[in-house]
Nucleic acid binder design. Sequence first.
DNA 1: AACACCCACC
Length: 874
Amino acid sequence: MASTPPHCSITATTKRYQNHPYPHNQLKDHRQTHNQNPHQRWTSNQRVSLAKPPLPPSSRNAPKPAATTTTTTTQHPQIHPTFPSFQPPKSELVSDFPGRRSTRFVSKLHFGRPRTTMGTRHTSVAQEALQNVIEYGKDERALENVLLNFESRLSGSDDYVFLLRELGNRGDCKKAICCFEFAVKRERKKNEQGKLTSAMISTLGRLGKVEMAKTVFEAALTEGYGNTVYAFSAIISAYGRNGYCNEAIKIFYSMKDYGLKPNLVTYNAVIDACGKGGVEFKRVLEIFDEMLRNGMQPDRITFNSLLAVCSKGGLWEAARSLSCEMVNRGIDQDIFTYNTLLDAVCKGGQLDMAFEIMSEMPAKNILPNVVTYSTMIDGYAKAGRLDDARNLFNEMKFLGISLDRVSYNTLLSIYAKLGRFEEAMDVCREMENSGIRKDVVTYNALLGGYGKQYKYDVVRKVFEEMKARHVSPNLLTYSTLIDVYSKGGLYREAMDVFREFKKAGLKADVVLYSALIDALCKNGLVESAVSLLDEMTKEGIRPNVVTYNSIIDAFGRPATTESVVDDAGQTSELQIESLSSSAVEKATKSLVADREDSQIIKIFGQLAAEKAGQAKNSGGQEMMCILGVFHKMHELEIKPNVVTFSAILNACSRCNSFEEASMLLEELRLFDNQVYGVAHGLLMGYRENVWEEAQSLFDEVKLMDSSTASAFYNALTDMLWHFGQKRGAQLVVLEGKRRQVWENVWSESCLDLHLMSSGAARAMVHAWLLNVRAIVFEGHEVPKLLSILTGWGKHSKVVGDSTLRRAVEALLMGMGAPFRSAKCNLGRLISTGSVVASWLRESGTLKVLVLHDDRTHQENLRFGQISNLQMLQL
DNA sequence: AACACCCACC
């Protein structure tokens, strides 16, 4: 039952992470984490099972919405993730949200919710002073005059704290600093100066002025009033909320050198900083343990912050344990607790459980709010369950919960990712109609969405609009642009964006480098990618598993020569031609002063040159290179995940020899014995012995999101098919089909292969045709029309260019199967039932349909016979 | 003096 989570104490959680149940299994959280120590999620057999289906919304003390929106929620996985009525018609949308303001503070600035100054101990004179400062304090002189006028009537540091906080809430950093300096200069008592300092640091932290906060903090230390636990807590928090987690931790540990003992707030601040910085849960628990050892009583905020750590890493089991522990300790849970817990459970992919938890909230007297709904809607959308997302959206509207900045951005990013730009624009319009301006998140989502659909003209326009409206691009903006441009082969644009990025004074991070490395890899330039990997390491940026996965996945990939058609109908080949070698040189020279820049600019130039048709290095060198990459990965202790394993298997499929593949499989063995055991066993034909192990592996893969899971099945099958283990490949795809890895692959009349790799698709074609044959031989009716869908290759960069289609066509032709391309749809191969039936009745057909392994072992004979028999009975 | 949801890389 969901109400009885597996571990109800912190110690149990800690222990689990030390002695996890699968010592040989290294299947890791496949999702990206942006931190330096990517979290691992040990998949577990101790999941909380959901015996009863989730409650429909009507059971949550909520008025029942229109009948059509309530009944189907979350009971079954969505087979066709469509969003048919998620977006109401424009007029309806507008009437649903007639310009209501969000109930939450709309953060147009870079700080979060403003600190409320209600209930502080300021006097009414302070109120008046504030008005005057705002109105007349135009410059430093004028401001000082205003303060001088009020000086005698303001009563002590409380009033000044109020002033600088209020000015901070208005985003007026300069005036706040002036007030602070004015007050500190006149204050004699050290502890009062300390109070002012803490308030100033905290305000600056909220404003994103972390450098200034640091300056104030250090000055206060030098002047002798800064060494208070309050000032330290404030600077830890300021660092934490601005992404300087390591600095926060450093300051925290330095406290004892100043003779200070962290208090509850300090611990809470550092744990919160860890959450924001993506520190591993295990490490944060060490801090938590220390806190307990020092006799501190953790409170609601401590637990909420710990929950946030879990949410970053999708550690839903640990999050549930924490929630239990709160109950055990008698700590009240609030809406923050629930929202953070829900986020952890959603990010852990347990949407049904999240829904159940949300359903229990009203009974606990905590009503879901706009954050709860955005969390769940985002969770459902990321899991591909768009109908469930839409149901919750409707429910939220029905309950009269207004959308806020984040929930608009959530919706927008769903549509932008799906390429449904009409609807995305409707969301934008509605957002602005309700008085919420598009912010950097909105623009980043739009840029990424349009970029991924190769709509570069729109990307350019959106980027211009963003700047015209004074929304400052951030690291994500540049990262997105560089990624989409360089993946699309628009290297000059990528280079321009990179220059602008440097001009903005931002520092490249692991994601930006990984995007560049991936672009190189996608173009077959593995060795350049490796040199950029070295470069980033030298810059002090630690690569993560994603960086390595890109490179491993690129092994043996030929340089792509296909061009990208953008929405203006121009191909990127034209772009590349226009980028003459002298232009590359010029660009390189202009930035030669900065080693890092010139390296990246050179890489862009190299990409362009490579596109022009240079040969890439020989395979032997590439193998040495890739083995070096594995070596570094071990050295840096980068933990592989399931995507790494898929990448290794894909690399094997591109090896020309068994020997080469063995070297890669050896690397797989070093990473994960179980995955290796299954892949190697099936490859060598030890089928019977490995199948049980394979089942437990598949159980774990099934816990991943659908595209990660299908990628693994695709990779494993391709590798087996490539090395002649076609029967083994077929067993894997049939297992995948049984487990619904590919949604809706198979019906009597239609085989949909569009999500499959070429090996998987071919193994599946054999199985499906054997199934049709069984229908024929049992004397049942065969559908009038049979079709095999391979897709148009819309996942490929060039519309209509589908390697999958070609592979399947060649396979069918080789077997003499009577399928032809449908005239109106290149991705569909069709035939009539009667023609296929008579072909299947031919004497030679069975022989070409039944697959065999090149390598089999005696022990498999019985197993093989049984399986073949089963095949015929399908 | 401290807490939740949205945007980038395989």
